[in-house]
Simulated scan of single mutants.
Amino acid sequence: MAPEPHLPAWLTRVGVFDLETTGVDVAADRVVTAHVGVLDARGREIAARSWLADPGVPIPEGATAVHGITTTHARAHGRPAPEVIEQIIRALRSLFAQGVPVVAYNASYDFSLLDAEARRHGIEPLDSPGPVIDPLVIDKAYDRYRPGKRTLEVVAAHYAVALDDAHEAAADAVAAGRVAQALAREFRLPETASELHTRQIGWARAQAASLTEYFVQIGRIEPEERIDGRWPVRASESA
């Protein structure tokens, strides 16, 4: 029998977090649905809470096509955005205060948009959230040259993690947590979540620089433009 893969201690209890939103602009777009949960070492969700917000603005048809929530539904059934944002931040702050790392796929998107929403509604934002575990950044760091897309659906399939309802906040959050655990079984990650958090800051910066260089080469962006590599929160000053 093969020996059990080495697992870091932070694997035994991890938070998971995901947002579905009105768009992809972290400074301007709004939260529509959210999920915060906790997984045990086997990837079972042992605590969970989901939210539906009335974002206070129309939900574009393109966003509805992704997550299925219409403006009419959000206005009829969603809670006021400030209430939802405050509760999401409270849930995350509680996990961080307990030393529980929080997994978020493409974390700089979710945490940056949440930061902008907090500032928009006069709510105290998370102060240097961490430790955060971002399977997207980790996967790119440890398997840099694997061809293909790096969406959650593709990466989950690569690591044999089920994702049956993509772009639903709870399903995406749980799948991201399980991908993080799969990465910990596949690669020898740092022994502490705090050390991994610190390393991801550098990895994200390097990945953004590499992507910037590529986009300049193919003419997608101008030579003076730069992709923001700050992680896990970026562009808060523009919110």
Rank of each mutant, 00 (worst) to 15 (best):
A239I: 01
L196N: 01
Y214H: 15
L196I: 05
Y159E: 00
G78E: 06
R13Y: 03
V16L: 10
L183K: 04
I89N: 06
Y214I: 13
L163Y: 08
R146C: 01
A27E: 13
P223M: 07
T70P: 12
R146K: 10
G177N: 05
E20R: 10
G37F: 04
S210Y: 14
L136M: 12
V14N: 11
H158F: 14
A27K: 11
P101F: 08
G229S: 11
Y109F: 15
V16M: 05
Q87C: 03
G56T: 00
H167E: 02
V66C: 02
M1W: 11
V16K: 12
R13P: 05
A104V: 08
P58M: 05
I69L: 03
D164N: 12
P190Y: 02
D29R: 00
H67D: 09
D139T: 05
T151M: 09
A48G: 12
Q217E: 14
V66K: 06
G148K: 04
A156W: 00
A209P: 01
N106R: 05
Q98K: 14
G78K: 12
H197W: 04
R199L: 14
Q181N: 13
V31R: 13
L211K: 12
A171H: 11
P131Q: 02
D134M: 01
K140S: 11
V102W: 04
D18H: 11
E186C: 12
V132R: 06
H158D: 12
W203D: 02
G43N: 02
S194D: 14
H35D: 05
I69V: 15
R150Q: 00
R188V: 15
R119Q: 15
R230Y: 01
R144S: 13
D40Y: 12
L152D: 02
A206Q: 15
